[in-house]
């Protein structure tokens, strides 16, 4: 951020901060939704989602730096995002195909190994193609006067993506392939007897999840302008998982709400212990543990917000009659 921002009027600074927060919430919602697809609906225990996010971001950054300059910005943006998505999907294929036959907790450790391994290798190896992991701005040069525009543009992109993913998941779950996935999640053997190919169904869901995470990563890379491996550590995975279990395994609206909630509490918790407090990580972990002990299916369980409101209304109506 350049020094010009400091001299901007307070109202604009507030707008900047707010758009930044909402963009991050949107990205987390994308990550949580895609993880929820794998863990909530698909009932596969993956702990490697931060790896796909990283692959998407890194892939997009690498291609952006590799492409010749002078191409139209929007074209570069779209191409690199698709490329990031492709890299993440390839990663998903690489880990998914051999590992999805594994039982629950072995899959968890294998995917975790993948997420951590990818990051470690790329940060250790001398393959930092974008120098210092920075990503050139492709849409337009950013300075203090058009920063808000830049952020609003990304806000639009992120909102569009979230809406798209929500529609995708909704339609998928209701489609025949989605029903097959739910059947496999319930009972793999029984689903197999019905003529569903369990491995195929699982791989498909896993790939969809990793592709969405990769896309989110690519957008993040362009938005933030860097892909430092330290931003993709295990804490990210814990955060995404916390959002998913907070919102409920298998709940779309719960996921989005939880992403907002978490960001808000993170800011809030961060402020409790002073400006630079990092206690929020401790508190996050504590929330996760308590949640698992008292509400292992999330606050609402696999229900949507609309169901919860309807139930609540019905109960109230029933209560007023009685």
């Amino acid at each position: 951020m350049d020094a010009g921002v400091l001299q901007l009027p307070l109202a604009i600074k507030l707008d900047l901060w707010l758009t930044d927060q909402v963009i991050l919430v949107g990205l987390f919602a994308l990550l949580a939704l895609s993880l929820n697809l794998i863990n909530g609906w698909g009932r596969m225990f993956s702990l490697g989602h931060h790896g796909f996010y990283f692959l998407g971001a890194y892939g997009a950054a690498w291609l952006t730096a590799a492409l010749p300059t002078g191409l139209p910005g929007a074209l570069v943006f779209v191409t690199t995002c698709l490329f990031g998505m492709l890299v993440a999907t390839a990663g998903g294929l690489l880990i998914g195909v051999p590992c999805l036959r594994l039982r629950g907790d072995y899959l968890a450790i294998a995917t975790l190994g993948f997420g951590e391994g990818v990051r470690l290798v790329i940060s250790n190896a001398d393959v930092r193609v974008p120098p210092g992991f920075t990503v050139p701005r492709v849409l337009f040069e950013v300075n203090s006067s058009n920063l808000l525009m830049y952020r609003l543009l990304f806000l639009g992109i992120v909102i569009l993506l979230v809406v798209g993913v929500v529609l995708l998941i909704r339609n998928y779950v209701r489609s025949s392939a989605g029903r097959a996935m739910l059947a496999v999640a319930q009972d793999e053997r029984a689903a197999g007897l019905l003529g569903i190919n369990p491995t195929g169904s699982k791989v498909l869901v896993f790939l969809m999840g990793s592709a969405i995470a990769g896309l989110a990563g690519a957008v993040y890379a362009h938005y933030s302008g860097s892909v430092a491996p330290k931003d993709f550590e295990f804490v990210l995975m814990v955060t995404i998982f916390l959002i998913v279990v907070l919102g409920g395994l298998g709940s779309i609206s719960g996921c989005i709400l939880a992403a907002f909630l978490l960001r808000a509490t993170e800011r809030g918790l961060g402020m409790v212990g002073g400006v630079v407090s990092e206690w929020w990580q401790v508190e996050f972990a504590l929330i996760l543990i308590l949640l698992m002990i008292f509400r292992p299916n999330g606050i609402f369980g696999p229900r949507e917000l609309t169901d919860v409101i309807r139930d609540w209304r019905q109960r109230r109506r029933a209560g007023s009659k009685a």
Binding site: F45, L47, G104, D105, A108, F234, V235, V238, F241, V245, E278, W279, Q281, V282, F284, A285, L286, L288, I289, M292, I293, P296
Partner: peptide, 28 residues
């Protein structure tokens, strides 16, 4: 112990939480 009967996913996630908790507590 409280999650021992809540299923393996809940138990495993609790373990992740505890690990993360202790790490960050140690950082603090």
């Amino acid at each position: 112990r409280p999650v021992r009967r809540a299923g393996r996913i809940a138990a495993l996630l609790t373990a992740v939480g505890v690990s993360f908790f202790l790490q960050n507590l140690a950082v603090q």
